Amino acid sequence: MRSLLLSRRDLDFLLNDWLQVEKLTSRPRFAAHDRDTFAAVLDLAEEVATEHFAPHRKLSDAHEPVFDGERVHLPAEVGEALRVLAGTGMIGAAMDESVGGMQLPQVVAQACFLWLHAANVGTAAYPFLTVANANLLLAHGSPEQVDTWVRPMVEGRFTGTMCLSEPQAGSSLSDVTTRAEARPDGTYRVTGTKMWISGGDHELSENIVHLVLARIPGSPPGVRGISLFVVPRFLMAADGAVGERNDVVLAGLNHKMGYRGTVNTLLNFGEGRFTTGGEPGAVGYLVGEPGQGLAQMFHMMNEARVG
């Protein structure tokens, strides 16, 4: 049956006749694939989009996320669709096999994600943000950060966000005031407020990996003084299990036109509601070198379709 979401005929023409993606299989990275595997994964993406994302598009648009003061409530169909997607392995479609990815060409992976976006922009925002978050950490994070945060995101167990804007600064990132103070154990304590954070709080995943722009005291003014930190919703236990709650607190929900089905949040870091080791501040982990935060964040900003 002809899809009402996209024209598969047009997509096949673009990939095979115009871009000739099969030629990419001559490269060692894509040698395990051929035109048939590309077609199979596109078939799978169309199936997931049609059967699991599209049916609740109107429902999630009409019933925005609701915050009852303790937790965010979303239609059950959102979580069910994301669980199906996680089971397909498509979250890591273009990522290395070494981290659990399919190692598909980026152009084929984007064609797969196109089906999800066409089916339900609100639900698709969660995996899109997660993929971009994971790709940033693959490019700039340490091996330990990749093992701790990226692998669970590829598996669909964790989701990811980007935390840039602040209420007093808006999109003027040189004016962010969120602070990150170093601790002897190599971690940082992050305090501040971030605004317009898509996917910032929900019960759709075991954990939420926030990538947060913040200033280390003594850093230069302006964008040169901005660093990037992983600040998870839950800390990880020594055995690799999800552990205690980090001091990341949902202060309220925003309403974002065009993405009504995506929870959009105001987050307080280091509010004091949850304390770790009796110290104030949310526990954060520096990504890369100090002062490189904005340049690193552009890796995600240029990829993610929502903020």
Rank of each mutant, 00 (worst) to 15 (best):
A169N: 05
A54T: 03
G101M: 08
P75L: 04
E46T: 08
P290A: 01
T123S: 15
V78P: 01
G272M: 11
Q168Y: 06
S60W: 00
N302W: 08
K194N: 10
Q296W: 07
L211V: 05
R189P: 02
V190G: 04
V209A: 03
T148Q: 15
P220A: 13
K58V: 11
T148C: 12
D96L: 00
M301L: 12
T37L: 06
T130R: 02
A180L: 08
S227L: 03
L211T: 10
N264R: 07
N254I: 00
L136N: 01
N16T: 08
V263D: 12
E289W: 08
N254D: 01
G307S: 13
I208T: 14
T262I: 06
V108L: 03
D185S: 13
M90G: 01
D61V: 04
F13N: 04
E22T: 13
L4I: 11
A40S: 09
E77Y: 07
N120S: 09
P220M: 12
K256T: 14
L138F: 00
L228V: 05
L44H: 06
K23G: 02
T25G: 09
T88V: 03
R273K: 14
D36C: 02
E47A: 14
A81T: 01
Q145F: 05
F113L: 08
V146K: 06
M153R: 00
E289L: 13
K194E: 03
A45F: 08
T148R: 15
A237F: 07
M257I: 07
T275A: 09
V249N: 13
R57P: 02
L267A: 08
L173Y: 15
V21E: 03
G79L: 10
V108E: 04
V248G: 06
I197L: 01
G92E: 01
V263R: 08
P220S: 13
N246P: 05
V230Y: 12
L267Q: 05
T262N: 07
H210L: 01
M236S: 06
R35I: 04
L138M: 09
